[in-house]
Design a protein around this nucleic acid. Structure first.
Lengths: 212, 212, 212, 212
DNA sequence: TATGAATGAGAATTCATTCAT
DNA sequence: GATGAATGAATTCTCATTCAT
């Protein structure tokens, strides 16, 4: 996976403005349909300036990917670990899980434009998928596995299935909720994110089957 | 919702070939990055021929949308109803649900290229989202609601939550499985779809929480 | 001048329909902007049929030119001669001239769509100009010269200037009236063609200068 | 009439070169038959550069129209007024008229390529006709009306007909002379413009009829 | 460093003409 | 003879990228 070089993230102010503008424009139109001219306008720089900081338009995408990975890797994974390690004593694991997922949901909600860009490109490009897997999914899965182990020991999570399976369900349920909120809010007339999360959490934990 | 005119689906052979080639190319590169020249090459027609059947490149997309909606609406929703109505006597509902979801999974798996095109465009265009909602989601939700009622009466599905919530979880779990299979198969080294389905079905039904 | 071969004007019915449709479409949009598809639609034939009768689109124009020349040469020039020869006895020349010009005006008015096509093309192509000159202008000028001679003898027309000069003024005055009628009728709110002709005839004959 | 926005005529050098090349090419081939590629070659710029200055090919035409109207409006109408106002004392009106028309003839002769483009388009498009009428014809007619009033008072021009009629004859006689010069010079073997003008002026003033 | 005018390769689209039926 | 689907060269227009200032 050579697409990402995470070193040297000393971002010039204009570089950052260009990245932000690109996230906005890519997110609204998709990578191909976006033009460097519109990005420049949004960033408040000349079109030529973009190419001082990014050799090609493709490199802007790479820049976004790097930033996303950085941000998500930091907030979504690192902080998660801290939470798990810190919250042993005073709170029970069930509450911790709930809080954890709720925080993740808020996070994803807030970086949705960025996520949309990454997801769309990941749909079409293997190298982007690899980067996402290596830098986000694999790490998150590792953390979750640790967490799952502890949860399973305490009898909160199932241990008759691999953690990957549980993780997948978590991601699936969270993803579809976000998607519904972001893309079909008008059609579904959903409740606020808080109460939607409660229901999702319920189904995620206990399934759709009627209990005996 | 004016994007779709489902009438007149008497598809000329070349028109069909162009649509198929478009699905392939759009699916590989996305709508904007795909070129009519490449579509023509894939369809084995002259570039000009495309524009005999579709006024603009955008219209090809519309054609795909119409076909997908038709196909999905027919196979995914209509056949589902039949299944439900026919399978009352000889099979229990739990088995029916399993079969039903498994069939849906296979279907989505098979039309994934088409689905990928639609999903990407839906991400960026409200009118596509509306079409997808009206012609697929809303219908499917209706059918599921009927099914849920029966399932709930029989004590198979939960009735303490709205059917929408259960439906969302089903979609979420199925979607993430497909995505994993189609996009990260190399990374995850998944088992075959059959056994992955079994696990997903388990988690979907009973949740990730440990039972008391 | 090889553009025209006036022989063989045995027009097939469809050929005639194609020519008529072409006059309509060329006249509305100009030669280049007109499409053979639209001509075909207007003529009520298949597009391929056009190319049975005319090797190229350019040839349709040639066909129109031939027809125009034929028609104008016949009606505008030949009949004019007859009029002159027949009207010696019973009418004075002044009345004859008036009638003559009035008839020409009506004729040009009626074939305006055809004329518009020819004029536009003549503006851009030397060969068309040559054809128009040779087959229409030169002939008309010849006839007028004869007529002028007789008129001059009778003291009706000036003989201190070459007939070409008088002829030019006639054409100029008639042309500008037609143009005004056909192109700026909304802006000028002209009277009917009859009374406009009367004024034009007055100015043409006696000039714009105040008589002593 | 929205086709024209006369503001902002600060023409960039390349823009001017593109307009000049367009006048040349449009004038030679007509708008539809002209290609942007040929315009670019003539202007000595890349084809893409054209579209920096003019959004569409149609907009180039609009640019020409604006320039023509400006030029003609300025030179043909404004200067005319000055001439009339200044020449009261030292020259008689008859001489003034002659000079005036002769200058107009020279002007039209010099902008003939531009005029040819405008005329052709005016033949087919109402909006162009309206622009020409409003910005050129109407203004010129106003000026002439003033001039006619003074001329009539001095007994130089007829006052038994509306000035529009006289104006029409002037335009007709001038137009046909220009047309003859520009389009049929080879065929007619005309004298130089000066002496042709003399004859035209004679016929225009005194008509084609023999005086008693 | 920043600019934005200029570029030109490449994209979508048009349309006269051909040809199998 | 007539058709109209198919063609592909030509056309308008776009836009990432370069470079002189």
């Amino acid at each position: 996976m050579e697409i990402i070089d995470l070193s040297g993230l000393n971002l010039h102010e204009k570089e950052q403005r260009i990245l932000e503008a690109s996230i906005k424009v890519f997110s609204e139109k998709g990578f191909s349909a976006a033009t460097t001219s519109e990005i420049a306008k949004n960033a408040g720089v000349a079109e030529g300036t973009i190419f001082r900081y990014f050799k090609t338009k493709k490199d802007i995408l790479r820049g976004i990917l790097i930033q996303t990975i950085n941000l998500v890797g930091e907030k979504l994974v690192i902080e998660q670990v801290e939470k798990i390690l810190l919250d042993n004593a005073d709170k029970d694991l069930h509450t911790t899980l709930k809080e954890l997922l709720y925080d993740r949901l808020k996070l994803v909600d807030s970086i949705f434009p960025m996520a949309r860009v990454i997801i769309t490109e990941a749909l079409f490009h293997e190298d982007v998928r690899e980067a996402v897997f290596e830098h986000i999914i694999a790490k998150a899965l590792n953390v979750f596995s640790l967490f799952h182990q502890r949860m399973a020991e305490k009898g909160v999570l199932r241990n008759d299935l691999e953690p990957e399976i549980l993780f997948r369900s978590i991601i699936g349920n969270m993803a579809i909720l976000i998607a519904q909120k972001k893309m079909f809010n008008d059609q579904f007339k959903l409740a606020d994110l808080d109460s939607e999360f409660e229901k999702m959490f319920d189904v995620l934990l206990y399934g759709i089957a009627k209990r005996d």
